[in-house]
Design a protein around this nucleic acid. Structure first.
Length: 485
RNA sequence: CGGGGCGUGGCUCAGCCUGGCUAGAGCGCCUGGUUCGGGACCAGGAGGUCGGAGGUUCGAAUCCUCUCGCCCCGACCA
């Protein structure tokens, strides 16, 4: 057997990740465009599944899709002090267009709070116009210095929800509602357990009052911020003069939220489930859920096997699961098995002359590698079960990994020694739960060894209040500290 | 953006230090045949001017300058 083309996780996790993306045919670097990638059909199909799952939930919670311009007047970014400061270093700016230098440069959107703020001001006059619940699917550009496919690229795809409300309470409800939507998709569709929490003030979105996030743990123990939901307070309302008349006739600024997830989710998906053989996709996000590989030698065998294959595919199709028959002439069955394995297809069905003779079929699961031989009459019923089982097994395994790599620490030295040697390549990462005050001083202390507060969990699963390991002041719960992407 | 590494058929790479015949190999690809239960084999064949630009030279993949991109490390970030 040929050597695996994929670097083993234990050898170099970062190289493994890249190999999985490449061999899974998900994406490739855009070579001629710095820091960008080409998302290939196999990768984009996963994005389309995630889009559909998310979009359905957005619609179900009352949101409507819109589209705002890619180009934003530069002055808009400057209207919110923290916002401009946060984004200035990573902006791409258009200064020449139509062969002429522009009077006012356009920024290529790094996010759309500002331009949407401008239109909110036009559209909102009364409390009757609220809440305004919008979402847009878009591409954005942030000039990143270091890129990794899906995890951080200069251009990426995302959705950004933008809402305006008449009270802070209602806005906050929205922020947490959408955080729940993200957690739901992450856990129930992507089989990726997450911790919901609040970002420290040092880590929050530039311009937000508060930022909430879902944090996932990758197989190397590093944290991946997988979705964010911001309470913007009245910051953008003030900056863009988005005022409304209340029921009582007073004028007030709207309370806004924004929330987003991106193609980064795909990176998280890959680093949650894939193995040394390549991509592993949970059934619910797999564009192709099952592939049937026919095996035959002679023409008469071929005819019989393919006939049975099509009959079985039709039976299974009636259960709502499409079976792709890999009837390519060139590659041997073995080559086909490796091909689909690397691409993460959840179930591979093997059907050869022996099976045809015995009315059997072989079913193999991508995650466990387990093969089962079953009567053809049972396969249509069995496939949905196997897919469901794989979905829940993947989630359970990821959950278990999260659990077993989460540790408590009661001093800053302890935190440091746990995380000291952790890198994206070597792995060994942990989520360290420690009492820590939400104070930039504490964030700075962690930064000395390249760790960050990932979030202050919404639900405290540990021992409640304690003393901050940096300042000694009382805090009400442990926070998640980790190295991250 | 700083440090390091690297760009040679589709892919992985050799050649470069010490310029010089028609630029090589393996894999992949195409054709034909034999194969086919975990990456098949034989035969024939197509395909590169060496990331790009400029320079030195009788002569550049090889030396020099600039530039673009990729990877790794660091500072910044979804």
């Amino acid at each position: 057997m040929a050597e695996s083309p994929i670097t083993q996780r234990s050898q170099d996790f970062a190289a493994w990740y890249q190999d999985v993306v490449l061999h899974g045919d998900m994406a490739e670097p855009a070579e001629i465009v710095k820091g960008c990638m080409v998302i290939k059909p196999n990768g984009y199909a996963v994005w389309e599944v995630l889009q559909r799952e998310l979009d359905d939930r957005f619609k179900a919670t009352g949101h409507q899709n819109v589209y705002f311009p890619l180009l934003i007047p530069q002055s808009f970014l400057q209207k919110e002090a923290e916002h401009v400061e946060g984004f200035a270093p990573e902006l791409a700016i258009v200064t020449i267009a139509g062969g002429k230098k522009l009077e006012e440069p356009y920024v290529i959107r790094p996010t759309s709070e500002t331009i949407i703020g401008h239109f909110f001001a036009k559209w909102i006059q009364s409390y009757r116009d609220l809440p305004m619940l919008l979402n847009q699917w878009a591409n954005i550009i942030r000039w990143e210095l270091r890129t990794r496919m899906f995890l951080r690229t200069t251009e990426f795809l995302w959705q950004e929800g933008h809402t305006a409300h008449s009270s802070h309470e209602e806005a906050l409800e929205e922020v947490l509602r959408m955080l729940d939507v993200y957690a739901d998709v992450a856990e129930n569709i992507m089989a990726m357990p997450v911790i919901k929490g609040q970002k420290t003030s040092a880590e929050k979105f530039a311009g937000a009052v508060r930022t909430y996030a879902i944090e996932a743990m990758m197989q190397n123990g590093l944290a991946l911020q997988s979705g964010t939901s911001h309470d913007l307070g009245q910051n953008f309302g003030r900056a863009f003069d988005v005022k409304f008349q209340t029921k009582e006739g007073q004028l007030d600024y709207v309370w806004q939220t924004s929330w987003g997830v991106s193609t980064r989710l795909i990176g998280g998906l890959i680093m949650s489930h894939s193995d040394d053989k390549g991509l592993v996709l949970p059934p619910k996000v797999a564009p192709v859920k099952s592939v049937l590989v026919p095996i035959y030698r002679k023409d008469d065998e071929k005819a019989q096997v393919l006939e049975a294959a099509h009959r079985i595919a039709a039976d299974v199709g009636a259960q709502g699961v499409k079976v792709k028959i890999d009837d390519r002439e060139g590659p041997s069955p073995g080559a086909k098995f490796f091909h689909w394995e690397r691409r993460g297809v959840p179930l591979v069905l093997e059907l050869g002359p022996r099976d045809v003779a015995a009315n059997n079929i072989v079913l193999k699961r991508r995650d466990t590698g387990a093969k089962e031989v079953l009567p053809q009459s049972e396969v249509a019923a069995r496939i949905p079960e196997a897919l469901a089982q794989m979905q829940s097994d993947l989630y359970a395994a990821a959950k278990q990994r999260l659990k077993s790599n989460t540790v408590l620490a009661n001093s800053i030295d302890e935190v440091q020694s746990i995380l000291a040697d952790v890198t994206a390549e070597k792995g060994g990462g942990k989520f360290v739960m420690a009492h820590l005050k939400d104070d930039p001083v504490c964030d700075a202390r962690l930064k000395e060894f390249k760790a960050t507060v990932r979030c202050i969990p919404l639900v405290d699963e540990y021992d409640g209040p304690g003393k901050c390991i940096v300042t000694g002041e009382p805090v009400d719960r442990r926070v998640v500290i980790a190295k991250s992407y």
